[in-house]
């Protein structure tokens, strides 16, 4: 969905007859890397398919077995496939998991065709696991396919990266995100979908997460509170900051930090690109225009750096979260007041 270009590349490689034994699909989180990897696995396990793309009808026997993870020639190592007891506390993929993969490639194919391993979130492999994987990548068995997906290719060993064919997946166009959301989450109110799509920056997965965690509402609240700068409704600011107190507020705090960062990124992009960003919440553009007048990007960035530092300090040293929130608003107010 929305990854037609990448899919076409894979198909061309397949049709070319010399299919690489290892692929590294990389790109931002939530844009369909694992989805594409599964499509590729189904396609390869079925031994190819009709022209155009990697489509396999969902009622195809191979597709059904892949969906049940019950295909003898498929091994999936990912967030949902990892044995809870075996995964280490940090959710790493350990060397034992990778050895399972080697064990699968050590026996002949159950169904006689290709053997496929999907490593979803390859950056979660620890150093030992990555080194164990290298051996497989260097001497791949016949008709074996390894598909690695990651949103942080930098955390994968360069030696692994260099032995895979890399395929970059791009964030989706806003309309594609809207369409994707309509299909997987038809319960979302229509007026939110467009805002979510804008906020998520081309990642349906992120958009879904934002909808579930209430990120969009928080973002709208943030924009609403900044709308009248330099005037600031201090009662509301305090009420917001109050919600982040104590352990129960930690999730809200993190989400709010994310939203603040997102708002800031969008603000900078808006100012640099002159209105090409679109509004993810009513009044966002107006706030941006006002803050942008007379304020260079430089001063905004400086403010952001200070804020980010204080946020991470608060996190590391367990400082008062409320203070971080208040400081953010007060600093923006000062800035806006100085230019007004």
């Amino acid at each position: 969905m929305g990854q037609d270009a990448a899919e076409a590349t894979l198909r061309r490689a397949w049709d070319g007859g010399r299919f690489p034994h290892a692929w590294l699909l990389h790109g931002p989180a939530g844009i369909g890397k694992a989805t594409l990897a599964f499509r590729l696995a189904r396609f390869v396990l079925a031994g190819g398919g009709p022209d155009g793309g990697l489509r396999l009808p969902p009622e195809h026997p191979v597709a059904r077995r892949v969906a049940a993870l019950a295909h003898g020639d498929l091994l999936y190592l990912g967030p949902e496939g990892i044995d809870a007891e075996r995964a280490s506390a940090r959710g790493d993929i350990t060397v034992d998991e990778v050895r399972r993969l080697a064990a699968m490639f050590a026996v002949t194919a159950a169904e006689g065709g290709w053997r496929v391993a999907l490593l979803d979130g390859a950056e979660r492999m620890n150093a030992n696991a990555q080194n164990a994987l290298l051996k497989l990548l260097e001497e791949p068995p016949r008709r074996a396919l390894l598909v690695l997906t990651t949103d942080r290719p930098g955390r994968v060993l360069p030696t692994i990266r260099s032995r895979c064919r890399k395929l970059a997946l791009r964030p989706l166009a806003e309309d594609d995100v809207v369409r994707a959301l309509g299909e997987v989450a038809p319960q979302l109110p229509a007026e939110q979908v467009r805002d979510l799509a804008r906020l998520a920056g081309g990642s349906p997965g992120r958009a879904l997460a934002l909808a579930e965690e209430g990120g969009l509402a928080l973002f709208a609240e943030l924009v609403g509170m900044l709308a009248k700068l330099p005037a600031l409704d201090l009662v509301r600011v305090h009420a917001l900051a109050e919600r982040m107190q104590r352990s129960a507020g930690e999730a809200v705090f993190r989400l709010w930090l994310d939203m603040a960062e997102l708002w800031f990124q969008r603000l900078c992009r808006h100012l640099a690109g002159r209105g090409s960003v679109g509004e993810a919440a009513a009044g966002e553009a107006a706030v941006a225009e006002r803050l942008g007048q007379g304020l260079g990007l430089e001063r905004l960035l400086e403010l952001w750096e200070k804020f980010a530092a204080s946020a991470s300090r608060a996190d590391a040293l367990n400082l008062d979260r409320k203070q971080v929130v208040l400081n953010f608003f007060l600093a923006l107010q000062r800035l806006a007041g100085a230019t007004a």
């Binding site: 059904r64 077995r65 049940a68 019950a70 159950a110 169904e111 006689g112």
Partner: peptide, 13 residues
């Protein structure tokens, strides 16, 4: 139960 169609197949060739 789980559907029979999801059950793995050993294709002996």
């Amino acid at each position: 139960c789980l559907p029979r169609e999801d059950f793995p197949v050993m294709n002996e060739g």
